[in-house]
Every structure is written in C-alpha cells, then in structure tokens.
Simulated scan of single mutants.
Amino acid sequence: MALANMNVPDSARTIPVRAPRETQETTQDTLLDLRFRALMSDAEWSSLPQAVRRRFTKRLSGGRTAVYAGEILETRMNFAGRCLAQLARLIGAPLPTSTDAHVPIVVTVTEDMATGGQIWTRLCTRRDGFPQIINSSKRFSGPTGIEEYLGRGLSMALTIHASNGALVFRSDTYVVRVLGFRLRLPAWLSPGVMTVSHAEIGETRFLFSLKVEHPWFGVLIDQTAAFQETVT
C-alpha cells in the first residue's frame, strides 16, 4: 500500500509536537549516510521530498540518535493477523499486538554497533497495560543489499522504492539462520508480503504505514501512524 494513495486523516495534520530547530541540515552535512540512497536509482531518489531524503541520509554513528514522536491513527487486523502477531511473540513480538487508536508512539533510530546497520525501536503505548516495544535492525547486506533482522535468527530481505513521493520498503524473501546456515523460507511458510511506507505530510511531519498481506488470508495487519521529528 503506497501512502500517497491514502487520504491523510485530519488527526495526522494536527499532532501537537514541537518542531525541531534544525530542518535544513541536508546539504550542509558532509558526513551523510548514503546507504539507502545507493539502493535506489537516481530518478527514484530525486522524486522523494527533500525531508524524506534528509531523514534517510542522517548519519547516526558516534552515539547519535534520531527520535520521532507521534500517534497511532489506526491498526486493523483480521483473525489470521491476530494469530500471526501472537505467534510472532516467539521471536520478540516484531508486529503490533494491539488495535488501540489515537495513542502515542515513539520511534528511535540508533547505530547497530554489532553490524554497522541501524536499530529501529518502536514504543507503542496501549490504553491498558505497559507499552509494546518493537525492535528490529536494518542491515545493509543480503541478496537485495538491505535486510531487516526481526529476531531469533529470522530476517527478511527488502527492496526499496519511491512511489508517488513515498519511500517504500517491501519484503522480498524471508531467511532463517540455523546452526550458521541461512535457509530461505518457502513461499507457503511465509507470513506474506510486508510493505512499510514513509510519506511526507508537511512541516517536518510524516505518515508511516505498515501492511502485511497474504495471498490466501488477505490483509493480515494494516497500521498507520503520524510522526513529528523531535530535537536530538
């Protein structure tokens, strides 16, 4: 699901979060991280808004952290999606388990010191109980040049695209590491195609979408959240 084809909810335009002091650091920063950009064609990269390009070239080494605060606008799951989310607890719960809407969410991005990639941590609050913490690591390796490590040896190779001004990550294959060997999961054992989109909605705000779709069970999980950059 490409975010540019979605109607942006009104609540996404009115997140009461303070804007950062620095919003034009792109061309002045000579120490850019160009690994995401290297996986895209010149035309696709150039089609993205400047703010999106800046976020995905931000250098995070040396202890730097990017922080994004926002609100979960909607999470929908069918029965198979709920089962998948619960089953995924066995590898660290990388999928949302709650359908609470209009609750805060915070994302931090830091350097993965072990692999040189990036660790993405999502803190998703719930109306009842402790927040759910979702961790994953984007690693610049694998057959497509980038993969997301989910936990317990499971990772998925990603492809990266630009679609109508949105940056889109899409799962390509799933791989599990067992006894030092990388084994590709067959299609029938795959949880489906995961698509994550990042689209600018103005004034340093952006819309995040996560969608998992299975050829037999339809759309398993569909989550949308709106974020505002914070000062780091």
Rank of each mutant, 00 (worst) to 15 (best):
N5T: 14
N5Q: 14
M6Y: 11
N7T: 15
V8Y: 12
V8L: 08
P9H: 12
A12I: 15
R13Y: 13
R13I: 03
T14S: 15
P16V: 07
V17N: 07
R18K: 13
R18E: 15
A19G: 02
P20C: 07
P20S: 07
R21Q: 05
T23S: 09
E25Y: 07
E25V: 06
E25T: 10
T26S: 08
T27L: 08
D29K: 03
T30V: 09
T30N: 02
L32P: 02
L34M: 07
R35G: 02
A38E: 13
L39Q: 03
L39D: 01
L39I: 12
M40F: 01
M40Q: 06
S41R: 08
D42P: 00
E44T: 00
E44V: 00
E44W: 02
W45P: 04
W45H: 13
W45S: 03
S46E: 07
S47K: 05
S47D: 10
L48A: 09
L48K: 05
Q50A: 10
A51C: 06
V52G: 04
V52I: 15
R53A: 04
R54S: 14
R54T: 14
R54L: 07
R55W: 11
R55P: 05
R55E: 10
R55F: 07
K58Y: 05
R59A: 12
L60T: 08
L60Q: 10
S61F: 04
S61Q: 13
S61G: 13
S61P: 00
S61E: 12
G63S: 08
T65G: 11
A66V: 14
A66R: 13
A69T: 07
E71Q: 15
